[in-house]
Design a protein around this nucleic acid. Structure first.
Lengths: 353, 353
DNA sequence: CGAAACATGTCAACCGGTTGCCAAATGATG
DNA sequence: CATCATTTGGCAACCGGTTGACATGTTTCG
């Protein structure tokens, strides 16, 4: 019974299907060695006799062999894949992150799977559960999860968060103070004495940080500053804030992000308010399109592509430690910088009155 | 050194690691059945006695079991993953495609891996080779590969291409005529008698299609039309074309895409040309930011999110045929439509002279 | 009441690699 | 030339599911 396999015609030999991709068994047969030798030759160069290795390489090339990443992942647990979870793929702030992450991953021979949570914590948790088993690590950009949830995930797989400070979890964070300092100095030089900050969502860590930085920098230059908000971080969120901005009597307004700033800019122009002479407007992030406006938007740029890149490189350094000791410096903050365009300028002499 | 693992405690029993994820073997033990029964209970509801199935479900829930997609993929070949290859993730035309594709994939419980070719055919081929073994199908958006290469790939795995017509390969294509017809009608109604089309790259299938549609529609309305180009499909590409546009004496210009249109708009305003009274400008795609300009851009919208969605849904229908016969209608073209904003208007009476 | 039809669950092979252990071959050393 | 160290490559178990073949138990029906 047990030898029913061996009797009769030479029923298709154990390993060798027709159309399918070649396996190490095919190579082994062709090179006349054991499959395990092939595996070693391919993944641990040097472990095998040079002569044999060459023979195996030649056979592999002849068969046009590609290692099956799934078969490799099963025993090793390493998938050569990273996950990137974003709240909203079409949010321009995210694009850069995705690009940077994808590049860094591709450079290292890693594949990137992208999942979108659509701003929902629940969907985010689902998406994470789905990709978790098949990734070596996760980048959480703009996560909507609670700190505790993130920590729990970080305990299972390496995790890097972007734009969020979290005890025990690596975070890629911007040097908000730098860009804000430049912005405030810029406005002060132009002659502004009062600023309004139109803030974003109450729960936004980034919005809070930006506000704190402004709150610290403005008085140093002898400027007054007020916060208006919270508001939704969209064009409409900016539009909705205009009345309060005007009522506050400031000559310059800084919005939580470029989208809100553009909303402010549009509604201001509609109402016949001259920008920048009557009202200077600035935003954050330097998103795609922020220079499409007339006047173009002055903004504090956050290097988002670099954020994505760093996040992935740090993840990789934990997933597959580099022998040469190169380590990604995640301690240093991402440098932000002011981009001066047309939406900020000297206030009219009488405007400050 | 090598046996530090095995000394001491009674080396872990065959199936049951501590920290690791639970397996069907753990469930089997808990429910007192054979692992294969667990597998069937989980993947073929009904094949198993209801009573037993319940017991297994309970055990699975208790252990918080999640199927290991990699282990499942190895024997079945199905990975529940789709690949999306794009030329440039940060190209705003792509965003919508990515979002639509991701949503459709997530809805079906599929994971999406995204790879960027950075406009290089070689990188694209590499990226495809890398993801090929671990996906069930591929969406090629804005491929830079030759027709023959794509056909070769399509012979190995299900492939859907976006914005490209290719014998034997499913393509998601826009109904260019519809939007162009609306645009031409709109311009004619405004009183324009002459149009210039600033074209994109010579190799762009889409640019050619748009030009052909314009060429067919304009004369029907008694308008003259000229082509200016080819040019690079960027802001600068638009900017560079302004002199030739002015020289042509037209009152309306249609750019290959919104980016070029915005470039034209900006340089026109810089030169003191009034938009739309002296020159009406329109673009294609309705990209993010096309309404940030002053005046906002009139454009022919292509439903990119739907393109991504359709591409994935069609792929899914081939990968895992729906029992209910629902099929994705890929034959019908994606409806494009005119979005009228401020950059088009009545030409000045004397401008046509 | 016996046989055929059907339902249910087990066995064991398999997907395609990886890797610990070991035997044989080779080389170095005294 | 004997002895020991080092290479080299094979054996076989393993990763975690899936699935065809089959044995057993249960129903149905002539």
């Amino acid at each position: 019974m047990s030898d029913q396999q061996s009797e009769g015609m030479p029923r298709q030999s154990k390993r060798s299907r027709g159309g399918s991709a070649p396996t190490i068994y095919d190579i082994a047969k062709l090179a006349g060695v054991n499959p395990s030798t092939v595996s070693r030759a391919l993944s641990q160069p040097g472990r095998i006799n040079v002569k044999t290795e060459e023979r195996i390489q030649a056979a592999a090339k002849e068969l046009n062999y590609r290692v099956n990443p799934i078969a490799r992942a099963l025993p090793t647990g390493r998938t050569n894949t990273l996950g990137l979870i974003v709240a909203d793929i079409t949010n321009p702030v995210i694009f850069g992150i995705v690009r940077g992450a994808e590049r860094a991953a591709a450079d290292a021979g890693y594949t990137l799977v992208v999942a979108e949570s659509q701003e929902s914590g629940e969907r985010e948790a689902t998406a994470i559960e789905r990709v978790m088993p098949s990734v070596d690590g996760l980048v959480l950009a703009t996560s909507r999860l609670a700190d505790a949830q993130i920590k729990q995930i970080a305990a299972r797989k390496p995790v890097v968060v972007i734009n969020r400070a979290l005890e025990g979890v690596t975070g890629i964070l911007p040097d908000v103070e730098r860009g804000v300092g430049q912005l405030v100095a810029h406005l002060a030089e132009l002659g502004h004495r009062s600023i309004a900050f139109v803030s974003g969502p109450e729960t936004s860590w980034v919005s809070r940080r930006r506000w704190e930085a402004l709150l610290a920098a403005a008085p140093e230059r002898g400027m007054t500053i007020v916060e208006i908000g919270p508001g939704v971080p969209t064009l409409d969120g900016g539009t909705a804030a205009i009345s309060r901005v005007i009522a506050s009597g400031v000559t310059a307004v800084v919005a939580f992000n470029d989208l809100m700033a553009i909303g402010l800019l549009r509604v201001a122009l509609e109402r016949g308010i001259a920008v920048p002479s009557q009202l200077s407007i600035a935003g954050f992030d330097d998103i795609f399109g922020s220079d499409f406006t007339s006047p173009a938007l002055t903004t504090v740029r956050t290097p988002l592509t670099e954020a994505g890149e760093r996040a992935v490189r740090h993840l990789l350094s934990r997933v597959s430690p580099q022998p040469d000791g190169r380590r990604v410096n995640v301690e240093s903050l991402l440098p932000t910088e002011l981009v001066v365009r047309g939406s900020t300028g000297h206030p009219l002499a009488d405007a400050g009155a």
